[in-house]
Simulated scan of single mutants.
Amino acid sequence: MTEQNNETMLDAIESVQEVKVGDLVQGEVLSIDDNKQAIVGIIGAGVEGVVPLKELSTLAVENVTDIVNVGDIIDLVVISEMGKDKENGSYLLSKRRVDAKKIWEEIEEDYKEGKLIEAPVTEIVKGGLVVDAGVRGFVPASMVEDHFVSDFSDYKGKTLKFKIVEIEPSENRLILSHRAVVEAEKEAVKQEVLSNIHDGDVLTGKVARLTDFGAFIDLGGVDGLVHVSEIAHTHVDKPEDVLTVGDEVNVKVLSVKPEEERVSLSIKETLPGPWTDIDKKAPVGSVLTGVVKRLTSFGAFVEVFPGVEGLVHISQISHKHIATPHEALEEGQEIQVKVLEVHPDNERIALSIKALEQKEDDEVAAEDDYQMPEEGTGFTLGDIINAEDLTKED
Rank of each mutant, 00 (worst) to 15 (best):
A12G: 01
P120W: 05
K320F: 05
H321M: 03
K268S: 10
D34I: 04
E331F: 00
H235Y: 14
P306T: 11
R179L: 07
I124N: 08
G246V: 11
E166P: 05
K84E: 15
T8D: 13
G114F: 07
T289N: 13
V193A: 04
E113N: 14
H319F: 02
L295H: 02
G332T: 01
T377R: 15
T380G: 10
E28A: 13
D394E: 15
Q333W: 04
L243I: 07
V19H: 06
I267H: 10
V139A: 09
E374Q: 15
D201Q: 03
E171F: 00
I164N: 03
Q371T: 15
Y111H: 14
V77C: 00
E357V: 00
A180N: 04
E192Y: 08
E240G: 00
V263K: 06
I164K: 01
Q371K: 15
I32W: 04
F298C: 06
V50C: 03
T296F: 13
E7M: 11
V130H: 01
D345M: 00
G378W: 13
N35S: 14
H343P: 00
M372K: 15
F152D: 05
I317N: 09
D33K: 11
Q37W: 06
N5H: 12
V251K: 08
V64F: 00
V165R: 05
E14I: 08
T296E: 12
S150Q: 14
N250E: 15
Q336I: 01
L92W: 03
V308F: 11
G49V: 04
G205S: 03
L59H: 12
F162N: 04
G127Q: 09
I117R: 04
D11N: 13
A45I: 02
V130W: 04
G71W: 04
S255H: 14
N63T: 07
L174T: 01
E106Y: 11
K36M: 12
E363A: 02
V64S: 01
V78Q: 01
P306H: 12
S297K: 13
S318Y: 02
N250C: 07
D99G: 02
S90T: 14
K36Y: 09
T8M: 14
E87C: 00
S266W: 10
L311F: 10
V78T: 01
E240A: 11
A282P: 03
A282W: 07
K84C: 03
V98Y: 08
G273F: 10
V78D: 03
D154M: 06
R136M: 13
I79H: 01
V165E: 10
I335V: 13
E230W: 03
I314Y: 07
D33P: 01
V135M: 05
P258G: 11
L93Q: 03
V121L: 07
E3S: 10
L93H: 02
A133T: 02
S15A: 15
F379D: 08
V70H: 04
T8V: 14
T122Q: 07
K354P: 02
L295V: 05
A119G: 07
P272K: 08
